[in-house]
Write a protein that binds this DNA or RNA. Sequence first.
DNA 1: CTTTTTTGTGCACCTTCCGGACGAACAGAT
DNA 2: ATCTGTTCGTCCGGAAGGTGCACAAAAAAG
Lengths: 378, 378
Amino acid sequence: MVTAGALERLRDGNRRAITSLLANEGPMSRADLARGTGLSRTTISSLVTDLIGSGDIVETADRGRPHKGGSGRPPHLVALSVPRGAVAGVDIGHGHVRVAVADRSGVVLAEEIDTLDVDEHGVAALDRAAGMVRDGLATARVERSDLHAVGMCVPAPLDRRSARIRTGIMPGWRHLSPGDELQRRLDVPTFADNDANLGALAELGRGAARGLTDVLYVKVASGLGAGVVLGGRLHRGATGIAGEIGHVQVGEDGQVCRCGNRGCLETVVSAPRLVALLQPAYDEELTVESVLELDADGDAGRSVGRALADLCNSLNPEAVVLGGSLGTSASLAAGVRAAVDRYAQPDTAAAVRVVAGELGDRAEVLGAVSLAMAKVAP
Amino acid sequence: MVTAGALERLRDGNRRAITSLLANEGPMSRADLARGTGLSRTTISSLVTDLIGSGDIVETADRGRPHKGGSGRPPHLVALSVPRGAVAGVDIGHGHVRVAVADRSGVVLAEEIDTLDVDEHGVAALDRAAGMVRDGLATARVERSDLHAVGMCVPAPLDRRSARIRTGIMPGWRHLSPGDELQRRLDVPTFADNDANLGALAELGRGAARGLTDVLYVKVASGLGAGVVLGGRLHRGATGIAGEIGHVQVGEDGQVCRCGNRGCLETVVSAPRLVALLQPAYDEELTVESVLELDADGDAGRSVGRALADLCNSLNPEAVVLGGSLGTSASLAAGVRAAVDRYAQPDTAAAVRVVAGELGDRAEVLGAVSLAMAKVAP
DNA sequence: CTTTTTTGTGCACCTTCCGGACGAACAGAT
DNA sequence: ATCTGTTCGTCCGGAAGGTGCACAAAAAAG
């Protein structure tokens, strides 16, 4: 199977053209497939027979309408068959673990969230995550042997080569390779990435950035991170640590950041910092949600937008998608919008839409599912 | 010719695989081509016969060595034949026009530079550029009908759709579409892009960034612009105006910039501003070159590096290439290096090399040649 | 000189795709 | 009810492409 003749590759490619067309456009007739791929109806018929025989696609019961007008023989529609088995996504945050089990078309079958102190207890969090995946499989009535892949994200940059979290940010994770650790516990191929990257993947595939190609996804939560989508693909950078926007210096004399510098963006807009900043002035205990209300003048948003404006000037994206626990705040979006309009070049600002993510807190875990699906498909 | 059957496309693709392999690796034997493409020797032989018949490749006189060891029949090498005809590159700066005429393998046959006030006199500059192209063709002894394409760059962002320079920056170019204008004068397909983009293309193809895939090319000259190379391809953004790094705010109370804001990076590091800033303290008239010496403490470099550090955090590139008239300054490079190390995340800073461009002032015109070659090849 | 190794090319064969023809299945008109 | 027009899916013969095998050519090694 390693080597394939050119003709075999050709037919393989055409098969793939059919399946990807079906994946993108939904069920279609053979004639539609011929029009969509540029191949002849005859060839499509042959390929479809192949694909039905191999179980990759199925003929649906309902028959569509002829290509134009109502006249003509109604077509038989074929659709991508949902492959047997399941994939799982694991979202590890600073203070929570969220797990989703989905079928191989991405439909979530079971989802669960648990809160615990992740940062200090890496091993415990990984144990818990593995247990939650097993629970999710049971809830979804999926055999453990039918789990094909696991995607996971961690709230820290992952070096592409070592697949490790760099030291310092999460003390309990020093020198741990999260993907390998979870893979050992579940005995299933596991793929790890940064949380913002997977959030971007989810919003790109099934969220606010559907159909776009150049998008900045910004996760505003405990920390601050970006997923950079360029040309329709996630840009991970030379060593896989692209998207570290939390340490842009926004004030010369700001607080000391965990990275060692002063005045980092993250010291201004992350959820815990906002709570800490505003708490002294209030009697009741502040929650993350209540912070959003208090920041009605959009200070946090403007700080983020200030940094994003520079990035927009450099990358000229179609959209900025705001995610994370603070991403749905209207005042945040308004602040970002205002700052982008103020600091980015006019044409750049005019070209970029600033929108809230559609997937909320689930973006990361759904992106992890997408990652697992992408890794198991080819 | 618009439609092509799948088999025809297959053979076309295989032909292209051969030519691109020859383009990347130089002259090869048929057997090497078979090993390189994965096709059989028989097929390669047939394709090579085709390609020799169509004149796309030629059999060289010298015969290479057998694949391994000295034993075996020595192969006949085939090489990409340099197609007849020429392409031209035009670099329009704020105060100069530079033109290069090259054969279709990219070897420069004639090159010329002229200084004039471009900004105020768009029509005159375009007339001059067209004349210089014609002069270059004469020098290179190329018939005017053999000129296949022209690439050009302008020192301003070009909107992808309208292909126009946005108003304001270059008064004499308001509502002008540089590509269309030059095309009308030369009656040859002309493709325009931003100067930093084409500089990046040149350094990527034949300069300091050969073989890299994620590179920030920064042009430091009259203005400040970046060419962003990601995944081996130039990133132009949603509307084609990516790379505008000149208007990052580096000081709240800086000079007023031509863009309307205060404290833009461009007000600190562009050549004319540096001259204007330093001139009062010196008797003799300062040149751009002399400014470099005076900035030995690297102030300008540190300002640029400060902005680049943020961008590196977001994009995690392999290299930053410094181009433009100030790009070869050692103090500039040192300043950028220092600021990146200071302000970027340690892992990001460690992953990025800061190097001077190898092509100097010729980068843009060579990139324009590359653009023309890329557009005429397929 | 013989053997070994590598190269380039004819030939028969297989795979893949395509155009034309044909029946099937519907809508609308008569 | 019947006819006509249209679209859909498939079968068939033929063309185009790629591959394995065999074989001659050309050099080095023994």
